[in-house]
Design a protein around this nucleic acid. Structure first.
Lengths: 154, 154
DNA sequence: AGTGAATAGTAATTCAAC
DNA sequence: GTTGAATTACTATTCACT
């Protein structure tokens, strides 16, 4: 029964604007599921639904597209997993990763909308990050590869 | 002053596990920002921070990597923007999009971890989605292109 | 505009039960 | 393991002020 309910919650959330858990309780009731807010709270945690600001400026629940990869933390971890080397020349940053991984990482970096990052080009194992200036390049590197995780460039 | 604070919040949130707004208030205080929870609540909305389930099973605040593109909704909208056509043959789905857009969309679809989606291959304007079976393919299409938004295949 | 104090509104957890 | 009732904990908003 719970499985059904979780599925229905995903449906409901992706179809209509659910702003509160109480609203979800009511919507589920109409679908034939009788549960309370307490249960919904647990379901939401289990489904890892997130609250995002909708177009109307109000909060609503949503399904994160990048399941576990929503956070900057996760990007860093993924990058760390495939990281080979990094180099910087003025406003340009070049990151080498394991073959075949450049595109995926590049696209993640690209979409994080880092201010000062003008563009990203990724080949098979190389990512070129074009920044506005040297400062922006340094900040970007710091964001992607915080000291603790950065291997020496040699 | 507010700008500084918002920047510091992003830093704090990406560096340590901030579980509540009160915790953030305290952390900001140590950084020299004296504000109350009310203000933090507004800041969080403005920064569009989200609450995600951390490794310890507790909630923490996080910066979404894909700024406005975190939700399934957003993926659908992006797909709709560049959508040309869709076709399905048994467990295979082929989606055509405007030239140059296949990779970005494909990678987003890929990372959404749709159950029953085995893999994604994207060329320049074509995305091939390999599903486990016909059912999975139909479900995936339904998820990506709900009736209302789907143009006739014809 | 930005903010805090207070409050209303909402969500998470506890505790007990099954 | 799952749930609801009650409670606690937390967050958003209102109102007043600047």
């Amino acid at each position: 029964m719970k499985e059904q309910r979780l599925l229905r919650i995903r449906e409901l959330v992706s179809q209509q604007e659910i702003e509160t858990q109480e609203e979800l309780v009511r919507a589920l009731e109409e679908s034939g599921f009788a549960v309370t807010q307490a249960t919904i709270s647990r379901d939401i945690k289990e489904l890892q639904l997130i609250k995002v600001v909708g177009t109307n400026g109000r909060y609503k629940y949503a399904i994160p597209v990048m399941a576990s990869s929503v956070t900057l933390d996760a990007l860093r971890r993924r990058l760390a997993d495939v990281f080979i080397s990094q180099a910087r020349a003025q406003n340009l940053v070049v990151i080498k990763v394991l073959p075949g991984n450049a595109n995926a990482i590049g696209s993640m970096i690209d979409t994080m909308n880092h201010s000062g990052l003008l563009g990203t080009i990724a080949g098979d194992d190389t990512i070129l990050l074009v920044c506005q200036d040297e400062d922006a390049a340094i900040r970007l590197l710091d964001t992607l590869l915080p000291q603790a995780d950065r291997r020496p460039t040699e």
